[in-house]
Design a protein around this nucleic acid. Structure first.
Length: 224
DNA sequence: GCAAAGATTTGCT
DNA sequence: GCAAATCTTTGCC
């Protein structure tokens, strides 16, 4: 399947975030380098505007979320729980704070480099017990969660603010010209936002590939 | 200044 | 099913 050229991809990301989020299911995330790594995105979540009480943008413009207020197509990477990074793709025009969190993906190329990157990033107890038999991640779940996806792709805050759409960048996003059919995309409430009041806690702004075994956590949800 | 909580993951009970 | 690991960001004094 052909990928959209950068201008067309940017136009999708500049549009409504819920539509952009669905277009990112099936998109490729590419880490260029001596060992090229490619994953196919299978799960995302939309965070839309300052009114969204689950979004980092709910505090208004701050040093951390600054890039969410900028132009579409940029990476917004932050640290959660002091040990994992999360990658977002900024959406909507500059001034409108919105982004799509990339929650899970399947490996398509460079899985050796991904395994090595995962092994090098073992926080907490896992690192302390590193001498014990490391029960390495199963290949099919190498990027099955926002934190481990960033670990497998060596994504951290140094990637934040960089353009994911521009050809030639070290970390790139390619959106297929033909979107995944609606009946192959599931939707559910977003994960890990128990702090948010309703309706934000329950809006079905998490989207995932119904056929993928690499979707994180529980797959509860309906067709979208 | 300081306390609290977080868009997570893992291993043990 | 639960708690630990770990540190940045936010909010309040």
């Amino acid at each position: 399947v052909r990928a959209l050229d950068p201008d067309a991809a940017r136009a999708i990301l500049a549009g409504p975030t819920l539509e952009a989020a669905r277009r990112l299911i099936g998109a490729s995330l590419i880490r260029e380098g001596s060992a090229r790594r490619v994953v196919r995105i299978v799960e995302v979540e939309a965070y839309v505007g300052m009114a969204d009480q689950a979004s980092h943008a709910r505090f208004g413009r701050t040093a951390r979320n600054e890039v969410m207020f900028g132009p579409p197509g940029m990476a917004y990477v932050y640290l959660v729980y002091g040990m994992y990074h999360c990658l977002n793709v900024v959406t909507e025009p500059a001034g409108a704070p919105a982004a799509v969190l990339i929650r899970a993906a399947e490996s398509e190329a460079g899985i050796d480099a991904m395994r090595a990157a995962r092994a090098a990033h073992r926080p907490g107890r896992a690192a302390r017990d590193a001498d014990r038999a490391p029960r390495g991640p199963v290949d099919g779940r190498i990027a099955s969660g926002p934190g481990v996806l960033c670990a497998a792709m060596s994504i951290d805050r140094s990637d934040s603010g960089h353009d994911l759409v521009d050809l030639g960048g070290p970390l790139r996003l390619e959106i297929p010209a033909v979107p995944l059919a609606d009946n192959r995309v599931g939707a559910s409430a977003r994960v890990g936002i128990g702090y948010a009041p309703e309706p934000w806690q329950s809006v079905p702004w998490r989207f995932f590939d119904l056929a993928s075994p690499s979707v994180s956590g529980r797959r509860a949800g309906s067709r979208s």
